[in-house]
Write a protein that binds this DNA or RNA. Sequence first.
RNA 1: GCUCCCUUAGCUCAAUUGGCAGAGCAAUUGACUCUUAAUCAAUAGGUUGAAGGUUCGAUUCCUUCAGGGAGCACCA
Length: 567
Amino acid sequence: MFASLCELPLTGRPYPLKSTSLNFHRPECAQSDMATVMTDQAETSTDDSRSPLEQARREKMARLIELGVDPWGGRFDDRAMIGDIRARAAEIVYRTEDGTEHSLPDFENVAEDFNFRQWKADLGKGQMAGPQVRAAGRIVLHRNKGKLHFVDIRDMTGDLQLMIGQKQVGDDWAIVEQLDLGDIIGVDGMLGRSNTGELSIFAERIHFLTKSIETPPDKHSGLQDPELRQRRRYLDLIHTEGMLPRFLDRTKIVRSIRETLNEQQFVEVEGPTLHSIAGGAAARPFLTHHNALDIDLTLRIALELHLKRLMVGGIERVYEMGRVYRNEGIDQSHNPEFTMLEVYQAYGDYCSMMDLTEKCICGAIEALRGAGCDYQLSWADKTIDFTPPFERRTYDELFSEHAGVDPSDEAAVAKLAESLHIETKGRHPDVIKNDVFEAKVEDALVGPIFVIDYPSSICPLTKRKRDNLAIAERFELFVHGMEVANAYTELNDPDLQEELFRTQLAGMNEEDSMAKMDTDFIRALRYGMPPAGGLGIGIDRLVMLLTDTQSIRDVILFPLLRPEKNV
RNA sequence: GCUCCCUUAGCUCAAUUGGCAGAGCAAUUGACUCUUAAUCAAUAGGUUGAAGGUUCGAUUCCUUCAGGGAGCACCA
């Protein structure tokens, strides 16, 4: 019995096993006495009130073990990806009894009332002939027609139907009778088409690879509860349409941005994530502690200050793409940990960074859609036009246009601020102006639009315009009111940097700004950092825009959630 | 941190004015070798998020708590 399984060295291994080859985590399962196995399993269960659904699955698992099948499988070589198998559909022919091979109709473009069975009958008696293939995947649909089962399996590249007939698989039928939705199986067979034209593997061998003890979600509606979708992302990836492709797209975007930068001689580095001073941005950090050194540390809130040290050190084009951590609120565009790209280019300025930003974003769009694509992306119910160059408008222009007040008229700006319930007392006029900008202008920026030339007092790390010290050479890229990128002509004057750190961190008193003073960074600047452009891109937000996703939590695999109770 | 909304079977959702907690999928048993959200017959499945209160009676009304969602605040 199961001679076919015994021939396979690495899967469907018959029981009992030799003790040397046991890779089972519960030795008692190797015993042939199933009653003992089940008793022991019940005793090791953490939950006495195991659900009937789980019980049913465990009983099937026990039957597999009785059949000599390892329910946890093993190495399974030479399987093809389902996507690649589907691409071989054209190799399938219908061979009539006289030996003629007839190529199949194009099932992508057949009439609605096309009858494949009739098509075959018209040609005369014959057989489907297609390539021999091996696939593996998770069972996502299961249609039992007595001695013929239709099973849809899913791998990373797609779904494929298996046609499993009792006669065709022989002894493996005993395994087929134990299959549950969610189990992972391998299959050998011929690629063909069913009478309805559905591409299918006509199974000849079934290899059981992994038992699923939990019940999958509803096969039609999948997971709807957003909490469950985030907590059990693995299920979301399997069962929510579009989730796996979206995360694969995220990877394509990230890879494309690295390629764009690498092509231009930018050097990727990895800075520290544990900082003794959280610098480079004004955000509340997470606090932690190193025991051996007995020092308090923060998780980094930005990559900036270490990358600039590396520019001092001679890495003239440097970037890092990595996690930063900000101890702040959570909403549709904020997660406490997120991925930031920061790029520094010696001898550049903020205008070089605008060009680079366009290259990175358009390159990523091409990576998703193929070279020569257009740059019109739909997002929610709108369209975003990423055709370069993006619009470039000054801060003051946009301020007058959307706030309706002359940005140089401090009194008028303050009056408007008060009407918007923005605190004005004892605050720098530019800080007040910026609050008004955020309240009145940012949401109106559909973009993509580069907002350029910010008030210098709110940009402590930015070089000022030579002919107008009140203006900082900075841009922010906005799309649908969301800040996607932020760039400066970097400040490299150590004395001015120190001065700005000390007194000009927006809305912060002297004590707070001193707390953020990174004296080693100032010292580095004193050795001389080349004039440079610097750029930061919020990768998660960019991915949202490029994958038509409205919540940052749907482009982050495991967004932060409160811990689950009673687990 | 604040306001509002949501939480019912493993999953997706019902339940009238406060009056016996229901369906589909999944599961179990049976039939079926071309189905495709297969179909048909039968069976089983519940501490209505938790605790308390009002009431003859609470999924429904009230209070507190937990988790989640939307918005606000925070985020140079």
